[in-house]
Amino acid sequence: MSAPIVFIDGDQGTTGLQIHERLRNRTDLSLLTLADAERKDPLRRAEAINACDIAILCLPDAAARDAVGSIENPAVRVIDASSAHRTHPDWTYGFPEMSAGQAERIADARRVTNPGCYPTGAIGLLRPLLQAGLIPGDYPVSIHAVSGYSGRGRAGVEEHEGQGAANAPLFQVYGLELAHKHTPEIQQHAGLGQRPIFVPAYGAFRQGIVLTVPIELRLLAPGVDGAALHTCLAKHYADAAHVQVLPLHESSALKQLDPQALNGTNDMRLSVFPNMEHGQVLLSAVFDNLGKGASGAAVQNLNLMLR
């Protein structure tokens, strides 16, 4: 039996390059690549996507939709790393640890949409707590996150590593209009009853994310405290290979969070920081925006679909 053919459409971008690097030495699959002169040829790309078993789309949203529209071969399966289909009801959300049975749904799916980098952390923290009823669906959620500049794609890398790198900003908060495209994705897949406030930022480091969600215990049911939130998360991810919940005694010893701590991995580390004196809890997620937040997640989903 021949090895499955995997075509990465857009393998010269930040996500596509890392996916290619993770797959290039695999012997259980065959990578289909296009020559430089063919990458922007729509006919050649259409031929390639219809000749593969699984296509991984690392494209802008409009181009991803066009690529899916060019598929005529019903046997072709797709992993879309863009945000084009993340809230589409016909696409399976590619976050295997999100809920029971999600990994199996991904394994059987024809169309899988990779989660966004920020939503991976936000949903990873919030969904188990909402499903358990510890956080109500109408809770006024605020999410703050800082990503490495590679989250901007080539533009961010060029700004910080190109000729004008000396003038690159050290830190910049953006999304000030509170209309970031990841917000509907977070709301839908976390199970929130109302739109969260999401404030993202870029730092002067290449990759990695720290995402935090502050919680006011007075807005939760009586008896719900930091320990209860931690127990819920720890139970949900007890068997997860790529999501770890830091024990409370270890998080209590931390003085800061390093967004680069898990770079180069497909892992995500969740932590709970209770302040019982003031009735407040900080939830945090640390992971690689190009790993669990992009290319690592795509390869994880690919492995599920190939099994």
Rank of each mutant, 00 (worst) to 15 (best):
G162P: 03
L170H: 14
L129K: 10
G101D: 10
V173Y: 03
S99A: 15
S142F: 00
S150T: 08
G162H: 09
Y174K: 07
A168Y: 09
A166T: 08
A132N: 07
D90S: 11
G175V: 05
V112Y: 04
T113Y: 05
Y118F: 14
R152E: 12
S150R: 08
L170T: 12
Y93R: 03
W91L: 03
Q172V: 09
A100E: 15
C117K: 12
A165E: 11
V173I: 15
L126Y: 04
Y93K: 04
P136D: 09
Q131S: 11
P115Q: 12
D108R: 13
V173W: 06
I106W: 03
A103K: 00
E97I: 02
T113E: 08
Q163R: 13
F171H: 14
A165M: 10
E159Q: 15
G116N: 13
G148D: 09
V146P: 00
P96V: 00
T92E: 03
A107K: 01
E159L: 15
L125R: 04
R127C: 00
A155M: 12
L126G: 07
H160T: 06
G116P: 10
L134E: 05
R154A: 12
I143P: 01
H160A: 07
Q172N: 12
P89W: 05
G133M: 11
Q172A: 13
R152G: 12
R154Q: 13
L170W: 11
V141F: 07
S99F: 05
T92S: 00
E97H: 03
H160Y: 14
G148A: 07
G151Q: 11
R105M: 06
A166Y: 07
P140L: 06
H144T: 10
S150D: 15
P119N: 10
V157S: 08
G164I: 01
T120Q: 08
W91N: 06
Y149I: 03
S147T: 11
I123F: 01
A155G: 09
L170G: 15
L134I: 05
D138H: 10
H160V: 02
P169N: 14
S150G: 02
M98E: 08
L125Y: 05
G133D: 12
G162D: 09
V157M: 13
G94W: 00
I143C: 05
Q172S: 13
R154F: 02
W91Y: 07
A107V: 02
V173K: 10
I106T: 02
R111T: 02
G156Q: 04
A109M: 01
Y149D: 00
G133S: 12
G156A: 08
D90M: 02
G133F: 13
F171G: 09
E104V: 00
G133L: 13
A100Y: 01
V141Q: 06
E177D: 15
I106G: 03
T92F: 00
T120V: 13
R152L: 15
G175F: 06
E159H: 07
Y118A: 15
G156H: 08
A145N: 08
A165Y: 08
H144R: 14
E159S: 13
N167G: 08
G164W: 09
A109L: 01
A166E: 14
G164H: 15
P128T: 05
H160C: 06
S150L: 04
I106M: 06
V146A: 09
G137L: 07
I106A: 06
D138N: 13
G101I: 06
H144W: 07
S147V: 04
S147R: 03
V173E: 14
E177F: 07
A166S: 14
